[in-house]
Design a protein around this nucleic acid. Structure first.
Lengths: 356, 356
DNA sequence: TGCGCAAAGTAACGCGCGTTACCTAACTGG
DNA sequence: CCAGTTAGGTAACGCGCGTTACTTTGCGCA
């Protein structure tokens, strides 16, 4: 009897790599045959019998394909790369989750590379470039760039050698496709919710007014008010640092400025952290939420929104959807399909909880 | 003149893959020579002149090594795999950050694969197994398993084909090395901090008493009290759901149970979310933090601890360090070094803010 | 002059696999 | 009985690179 196992090392089997050749010998066929059945080739003529014999050999030997070798031969790595500062500033991890889930569905692997807190402009992109370079060395079929907050970015030149999609950010100079939240519609949603609850005098706690999030959300708020025949009173829009303390101070200012009858009955906080501070300001004054003052946030940061008391009604940033859509767009691009749109907007759904 | 660029496609250069051969021809040397200078081989005899000529060719052609081919030839992938549910439940992303940073330093690449919310026991490990399998197909040199909260887990059998380290969890059956937080020392730290501030009557808001976190932290608290000649009054230990609401209710119970003079002057909340609820209970009763009641948390969930008002003093879970240490341990294992310890404890540092 | 030896470099094999030719035997139809 | 077809396979090349063994050239020195 011929030895059926062909482990090249004398000792323990499977010490190092069972190859397709081993499987072939074990099954008494050629390596080509094995390759055919493993890749489920359509017009390959392999009898049902040998097919099962091969499969049994695979089982028996515990064969596991070598993805690297396969990629080399087939010229398809089945990898996408995503470079992101999210690892270092985990505000928007859900982008990665969405992207990874979608990639898994498409039988792609997502290679995650860290980009250091990229100040979008400065020449401090060294690490980001290195990450991109590393990803390209792995022969990724496409690249994703994801930011923790909606803004313009510059992507390294080298990235353009391969299809590229931006998530939660947009290309400040070139013409790369991007996926961003529909801030304007989100702002409208928030204010419409307050209007629906009967509020007419609405205070707004604003972010840094130059960032896309602030611009869009405020614009949406204005539209919603206009639809109701109202105007946004500039006096009621107070800026604050994007923190709980910032929200607290801004809320104090707005609450203390008016006599009770003129006081806004609702606060639209442009992010949840500020809403957290606003809660304190409100409670401190003996007012109740939402009885005396309704509060609506933005971002849906679970850790905050779901744990504030009362739980915060807020408009969610669709991170997961953006991640998934990014991968889908990338798939379309790598397949040679034309770009769907230069910039795809993703809706920001309202999350009803108990603060309105 | 011979054409110097050897792009195999007529049109645009660098369309698909500049190979080492192209570089070699461009520089007028053999591919072997190129390989030698690129890998900085020690005892290779390449004249300084040809060396620079080769480097120039690399630049000129924009050559980028093919990591896959290199891995195939050298039998070293330079990859570690990490399978984790953190992507889906991003509580402990910092583990990934720590691991990735360390991997980057070691010139390794971290392949992140999602594991679905693994109920540690149940047979619902389908996806986790699939993830492991995928990683092994990529020929990772080692595996990491990371959990969102400290607990026992079962890792798939196949994982044992390659060095494996557990992070923030431990092997429930086998003997895999693991990295976990030193909960006991952390609990001690927290209570010692309260004692140092003069508190003698300390309430504890407990987690589910069977999980490692609760057991360890409580044990540490007991030790700290014992050192001060005190005992942990079982009446002062109230359990709660691990949420803000749970913390609120538990705090209410503990605060309302005693007349003012018997009331605890400090609360040790076993996690920050519960501390968040406790804040509300305290403020609601017109008490101040830390004036009337000091609060100390555990976990250091940035979004909560850093944004509560007053900011929460808490004991940090050393996620980043655990991630880094995991990679270091893995490096040691793959290098054939013996395991340092079956289970490595990582200290939980105190983060002083303003609630004590 | 001739020998030895270091310097400088190259040919060629193999890593594990996809893929394209090609080959053989059995079966069909006329 | 023979050409043509099809089922069932196989040999062999190439993917891009690491690596070993081997070759060639120059040069010091007896």
């Amino acid at each position: 009897m011929a030895k059926t196992t062909t482990s090249n090392h004398a000792g323990t089997a499977r010490q190092r790599g069972v190859t397709m050749n081993d499987v072939a010998k074990h099954a008494g066929v050629s390596r080509t045959a094995v390759s055919f059945v493993l890749s489920n080739r359509e017009n390959a003529s392999i009898s049902e019998e040998t097919r099962t014999r091969i499969n049994e050999a695979v089982q028996a030997l515990g064969y596991r394909p070598n993805a690297g070798a396969r990629a080399l031969a087939s010229q398809r790595s089945d990898w996408y790369g995503i470079v992101t500062e999210i690892v270092t500033a985990p505000f928007a991890v859900d982008i990665i989750k969405g992207a990874q889930d979608q990639a898994w569905l498409d039988r792609k692997f997502l290679l995650i590379a860290p980009s250091d807190q990229a100040d979008a402009v400065g020449p401090n992109q060294g690490l980001e470039d290195a990450a991109t370079e590393k990803l390209l060395e792995q022969r990724v079929e496409g690249l994703l760039y994801a930011a923790t907050f909606h803004r313009g970015v510059h992507v390294p030149e080298t990235a353009k050698e391969v299809p590229t999609v931006l998530i939660n950010c947009f290309d400040a100079d070139g013409k790369l496709p991007s996926i961003v939240p529909d801030e304007r519609a989100g702002g409208r949603t928030a204010v419409e919710r307050l209007l629906r609850a009967g509020h007419r005098r609405i205070g707004v706690i604003n972010l840094d007014p130059v960032i896309p999030a602030a611009i869009g959300r405020l614009e949406g708020a204005r539209e919603a008010l206009a639809d109701a025949g109202l105007e946004l009173d500039p006096e009621l829009v107070v800026p604050g640092y994007a923190t709980a303390d910032g929200g607290y101070e801004a809320a104090c200012r707005i609450l203390d400025r008016y006599p009770q009858e003129d006081r806004p009955t609702a606060l639209f906080c442009l992010n949840d952290r500020m809403a957290m501070g606003a809660y304190d300001a409100i409670k401190e004054r003996g007012l109740t939420i939402p009885g005396d003052i309704a509060v609506i946030g933005f971002d849906n940061q679970e850790l905050i929104a779901a744990y504030l008391r009362p739980k915060l009604t807020t408009v969610a940033l669709p991170f997961e959807e953006m991640g998934a859509l990014g991968v889908q767009t990338l798939a379309a691009l790598t397949a040679g399909q034309p770009i769907i749109a230069d910039q795809q907007l993703v809706g920001c759904p309202l999350l009803e909880r108990s603060s309105v």
